[in-house]
Simulated assay, not measured.
Amino acid sequence: MRISDIMTCAISRMLKDEEKVFHGVSSHMPMVAMMLARSMHAPNLVHLNIPGGVNPKSIKDSYYSSAGADLWSTSEASFPLAEVFDLSMRGELDVAFLGGIQFDVNGNVNASVIGNYNKPKIRLPGGAGSAVLIPTAKKAIIWRTKHDKRTFVEKVDFVTTRGNLWKIVTPLCVFEFRDGKLWLDSIHPTSSLEEVQENTGFKLNYTEIKYTPEPTKEELMMLKKIDPYDYRTKEFE
């Protein structure tokens, strides 16, 4: 059982029919998950992306950045990136897929620096779209292909953006943000509560232990069809 398949299917199931959903660059897993959702249970989901395409038919040329020309050239319509931000700020973007480097128990996201801001160990790309979309999208989903104590910390080194997260999907589990804290939503079948806690820099909040459902045969078959080049595993390379 591959963790990339578990994560992609878990993300796909979070998406509902007729939702307007956006992914940016370096977002191969969400891109595939969105196409899986449209193919399985959400045929009217609206897929928006960086090149400005709506509901692209192909992702074959999107290997490098998940922003390939085919996301526009094979799409049903054009919806430029500036309009996506406007849509979100009007409260009409249902889901935005976003990234980050550090996350803390209070739902703060750091995408700016590691260490002191004025003399950082590492200077990161910064907020970019996250600073706008996390506060304004109805649901912000973050995915991360690493889960360790450097990523999930008690307090982030710098707050790039805060609050309004919905889910964080990692190779070990799914977190949900509620009541101002990150809560353990489900543990992947390839992991355990002990492993999640050992790799998390804060004490886990949970009320019950739930496990992420395994991908179904139908989902795995569809993944092979829509993602024959296995882009969903690219971020693990």
Rank of each mutant, 00 (worst) to 15 (best):
M1C: 15
I3G: 00
I3Q: 01
S4V: 09
D5M: 06
M7K: 02
A10D: 02
M14C: 14
D17W: 02
K20S: 13
K20I: 12
V21Q: 02
F22S: 08
F22N: 04
H23C: 11
V25N: 09
V25H: 08
S26W: 13
M29G: 05
S39A: 15
M40D: 08
M40T: 12
H41Y: 08
H41G: 07
H41V: 07
H41N: 05
A42N: 05
P43A: 01
H47R: 04
H47D: 07
L48T: 07
I50N: 05
P51F: 07
G52L: 07
V54E: 11
S58W: 09
I59P: 05
K60G: 06
S65Y: 15
A67W: 11
A67G: 15
A67M: 09
G68A: 12
S75E: 10
S78C: 10
L81R: 11
E83Q: 14
E83D: 13
L87N: 09
L87V: 09
S88W: 10
R90E: 13
E92D: 12
D94W: 07
F97M: 14
L98A: 03
G99Y: 04
G100F: 09
D104S: 05
G107N: 03
N110I: 03
N110G: 07
S112F: 11
S112Y: 10
V113N: 03
Y117E: 15
N118F: 13
L124P: 09
A131Y: 06
V132C: 11
I134Q: 15
I134Y: 11
I134F: 12
K138Q: 15
K139V: 10
A140F: 12
A140T: 15
A140E: 12
W143F: 14
R144T: 08
T145V: 11
T145G: 04
K146M: 14
H147M: 06
D148T: 02
K149F: 05
K149G: 10
T151Y: 01
F152H: 01
V153N: 08
E154M: 07
E154H: 09
V156R: 03
F158M: 11
V159N: 05
V159F: 03
T160N: 12
G163Q: 02
N164A: 03
I168L: 00
I168W: 01
P171M: 14
L172G: 06
L172H: 15
C173I: 04
F177P: 00
R178L: 00
R178N: 00
G180V: 00
G180N: 00
L184R: 02
D185Q: 04
T190A: 06
S191W: 12
S192R: 09
L193G: 01
L193S: 02
V196K: 02
Q197L: 04
Q197G: 01
Q197I: 01
T200R: 01
G201S: 05
K203L: 08
N205R: 07
Y206T: 01
Y206G: 00
K210W: 01
E214I: 14
E214F: 15
K217F: 09
E219V: 10
M222N: 12
M222Q: 15
M222P: 08
K224H: 07
K225V: 14
K225I: 15
I226R: 00
D227Q: 06
P228K: 05
R232F: 09
K234L: 13
E235D: 10
F236H: 07
E237G: 15
E237V: 12
